[in-house]
Design a protein around this nucleic acid. Sequence first.
DNA 1: ATCTCCATGTAACTCGTTACATGATTTT
DNA 2: AAAATCATGTAACGAGTTACATGGAGAT
Lengths: 198, 198
Amino acid sequence: MTTAPVARPGSIGRARPVSSLGYALLAAVAHEPVTGYRLAQLLRDPIGFFWETQHSQIYPELSRLERSGLITSSSGPGPGPRPKRTYTATEAGLAELRAWIARPSRFGGRHDELLLKVYASWLVEPSVLRELIAEARRHHAAQLELYLARDASARERGIDRLGPSDPRFADYLTLRRGVDFERGRLAWCDWVLELLPA
Amino acid sequence: MTTAPVARPGSIGRARPVSSLGYALLAAVAHEPVTGYRLAQLLRDPIGFFWETQHSQIYPELSRLERSGLITSSSGPGPGPRPKRTYTATEAGLAELRAWIARPSRFGGRHDELLLKVYASWLVEPSVLRELIAEARRHHAAQLELYLARDASARERGIDRLGPSDPRFADYLTLRRGVDFERGRLAWCDWVLELLPA
DNA sequence: ATCTCCATGTAACTCGTTACATGATTTT
DNA sequence: AAAATCATGTAACGAGTTACATGGAGAT
């Protein structure tokens, strides 16, 4: 039996709980060992489609995860002045991830700048609102195209026939949500544009 | 007592640009004069549907907006130990809001904890994923019901026949997006649940 | 020559959440 | 008697962004 509860064994003040970003990093590292640089890429694409951040937030968070025993690192010579570190998830890290998934989620923390602008749009000329929506439409159309291309190649490889214990199946579920979201947003943009006087 | 510190005509050191929350507050104040307390309510419902925050962030932000001359306040006796302040948008504030709407938006800043959990769900038993989605489904179903009730009463009052220069029309646009979003999310939850082994 | 990619970090700041603090009036 | 509502603020901390800093290898 592994000495499970991780972290500092004799620490009195409890360690800071793992942040959402921490879980995002853990989830990525659980796929395969990666560098901080690679994680920064993943947090633009594909994880970035639902959880974005910058590399400046990643490196300190990796240190925290390692201090908590949820990941371990091995370092070798790097391309720059500092050594390159490759992180691997520990059993404790996987256990923490599993526990987090099962814990009730907080819904909320919504922040949508487009809807905020639309909410205030009665103050501007209809043509300004029209351009605002048209710009959003272009963005969501481009994003949808990207997702659909991935969806097509994922289906080609039979990803939709995989089981829920395959990481690629989980990827597929989030990708489909991306497709639905962009489609919904596009349809809403079109509806608004139709409603607006020419 | 009205204080009107005008919008720093010749100030050299540029003041901090207005934050997204600042614009949310400005947009609400533009409807009618309100207190900080009332703004806190609006930032749960209905503005909170796309821009949430706590009252502890509102009061300092209101001070900043007033120092920038975008809103003014009048104070009278309050129910508690401190005076009650009612804020009103200035012409400069409305101009700033209009300029912000016309400026190009940054899309992004996505943070979706459910999708993050789903992304890592290959690590857990399918039953855990099932419960995760079922919980989300309940939440989105409840939220959809709320939006639909509002949508029905809004249509009864003929809000869908108003023009884009009426604030209630702008409210209606954001409400419809809420309905679409929850419906899309519900459909995705159902799709995942069907895909999962019983 | 310049640009991009790999790779890692820190500094300074703003944004956002939780908890603390007060107190009258109204509702349960 | 207890709780909710109205009403305003501060303190402490965690989360997130932008800018600074370094430097080799390979491509244009």
